[in-house]
């Protein structure tokens, strides 16, 4: 059974369509990465799936419950962690967890067991009596996860869980997610980080309220829209990135170009050889360059898809 399945899901705020006929399916135990620019409808979909917003059209099934009519059943079984770790700063770590445990109606032995499990999982033991407001970002995030996970949900929505967190804490969180995912928990994670998207089982990309890409990272990289017939992708490594970038942009055979640190990614006509490119660079005064063909990164995928859509509009 799919953990989440939507069909033509459409959400409107008055005249504005925030989510436009979205078809999604997330398998149980999967980590699903949901990407898209700010304001494209990511949080709106989460709210709808938790029954906070009524769909104007279409349906959404969450753990088999209809999100339009069975919000209570859904909320009892899913966990939600918002982008700003909604903790009570003046409550201690322990009190925050107890509060959420209470809200989900845990009691007796089960309450105790879950508290212990959540603490063990997140290693919060040494901080139990500390006020949440005095924790560092990474620990706040762990506490938020512990609170969202206290009732042993089978599905968790994480809305930009790693925004504003240092790389080490980010890595730690993902390790935790994989650990839980291994136990069968499904994750619906929104993020802006491409490296995180690459770690997801499947990803969806939403742009201007529409889901424009959906599949495994490899499937998306192989999409014909991303690598149109007669084109190839190459990477140029040079020390003078910006100047070389401007030169390449002006070449007629270059369809699009992006800078990644010391590298330039080009989408270019297939029949033009790497030697030709190398020669153009040499003529432009860029002697020390390295060229190699590459597969598109997820970022390439999303940039290409977004640009294609922009041209349509």
């Amino acid at each position: 059974m799919a953990a989440i399945k939507t069909k033509d899901l459409t959400i409107k705020y008055g005249a504005f369509t925030a989510v436009d006929h979205v078809d999604l399916s997330v398998e149980e135990g999967e980590i699903f990465g949901f990407l898209g620019p700010n304001g494209s409808g990511k949080t709106t979909i989460i709210k709808a799936l938790c029954g906070l917003l009524k769909p104007a059209e279409g349906t959404g099934l969450v753990l088999g419950y209809d999100c339009a009519t069975q919000a209570a059943e859904i909320r009892q079984r899913v966990g939600y962690m918002s982008q700003n770790f909604s903790l009570y700063q003046d409550l201690t770590v322990n009190e925050n967890m107890e509060f959420y445990a209470g809200v989900y109606g845990l009691h007796g032995k089960y309450f105790k067991r879950r508290m212990d499990e959540a603490i063990a999982l997140t290693h919060l033991e040494p901080y139990l009596e500390r006020r949440a407001g005095r924790l560092s970002g990474g620990w706040k995030q762990r506490l938020a996860l512990a609170c969202a996970f206290i009732h042993e949900p089978r599905l968790m929505f994480l809305d930009e869980p790693t925004a504003g967190i240092d790389p080490v804490a980010r890595r730690d969180l993902w390790d935790l997610l994989f650990q839980l995912s291994g136990q069968g928990v499904t994750f619906f994670v929104t993020t802006h980080y491409m490296d995180e998207a690459e770690r997801c089982g499947r990803v969806g990309y939403i742009y201007l309220s529409k889901l424009i890409a959906f599949g495994t990272p490899d499937q998306l990289k192989g999409l014909p829209e991303v690598s149109p017939a007669g084109t190839k992708r190459i990477e140029i490594i040079t020390t003078q990135t910006s100047n070389a970038f401007l030169l390449m942009k002006s070449r007629p055979y270059v369809r699009s170009s992006t800078i990644f640190g010391q590298a330039i990614h080009l989408l270019m006509d297939e029949q033009v050889s790497l030697d030709q490119v190398k020669k153009d660079l040499l003529d432009g005064g860029f002697g020390k360059t390295e060229l190699r063909p590459i597969v598109p990164s997820l970022e390439d995928v999303f940039v290409t898809l977004t640009n294609a859509l922009k041209e349509e509009v």
Binding site: C50, L52, A72, R75, Y80, Y88, V103
Partner: peptide, 13 residues
């Protein structure tokens, strides 16, 4: 203001 209300809405409260 602190966003905790949004979190509470997602719970059975």
């Amino acid at each position: 203001e602190r966003g905790t209300l949004e979190q509470l809405y997602m719970t059975p409260v």
